[in-house]
């Protein structure tokens, strides 16, 4: 828990661009909301690794959104069912259903469809909102947060020292 908090603070307080953090968060949302072993998540992983997004944020976000995703499961199922049973789209679904690649993508599953559409719809709003909040945080709250005693304890803890030395070695 302390480690997670420290990582979060480190990322927020670092020189990393807000867009790199918010984009990582948005990708984490997709992989966290949708079933992990889905074909589209392979593309998400590729993008996360190739685009210079913040990996620590991505992993933290993945844990966070997986939890939220579990709670939102019934909603994803309902939404996916609604979309997949939409009369106007039946022709599209039938043609996709008859394609091997799309069958591998498991698009006909209510949760895959529901969670993917919802996370894609939230992708841009999450990026923009996270961008705005991180910028705001850095300009208004950063100095105040650094002065809080608990933050100083965390920063000075042995675990963080080890973590920092390790990340330095890594870089």
């Amino acid at each position: 828990m302390l480690n997670t908090l420290a990582t979060l603070l480190k990322v927020l307080n670092s020189e990393t661009r807000p867009s790199q953090i918010s984009l990582a968060l948005a990708f984490a949302m997709i992989i966290g909301f949708t079933p992990l072993f889905s074909l589209h998540n392979l593309l998400v992983i590729l993008l996360v690794l190739v685009i210079r997004v913040n990996l620590a944020t991505f992993f933290l976000g993945f844990a966070l959104f997986s939890g939220i995703g579990y709670l939102l499961d019934p909603l994803f199922h309902e939404f996916g069912q609604l979309v997949l049973s939409n009369e106007a789209m039946q022709q599209l679904w039938v043609s996709l259903y008859n394609s091997t690649v799309w069958r591998l993508a498991h698009f006909n599953n209510t949760i895959v469809m529901g969670s993917l559409l919802i996370s894609l719809a939230l992708f841009v709003p999450v990026v923009l909102a996270a961008n705005y909040l991180i910028t705001k945080y850095r300009t208004s709250l950063l100095q105040w947060v650094n002065k809080i005693k608990i933050v100083q304890i965390i920063k000075g803890s042995k675990l963080i020292t080890v973590y920092r030395s390790l990340t330095r070695l890594g870089s």
Partner: peptide, 11 residues
């Protein structure tokens, strides 16, 4: 929960 259902379309 977390599995949903697979909708079957015409093949």
């Amino acid at each position: 929960r977390h599995k949903g259902i697979d909708i079957k379309f015409k093949e």
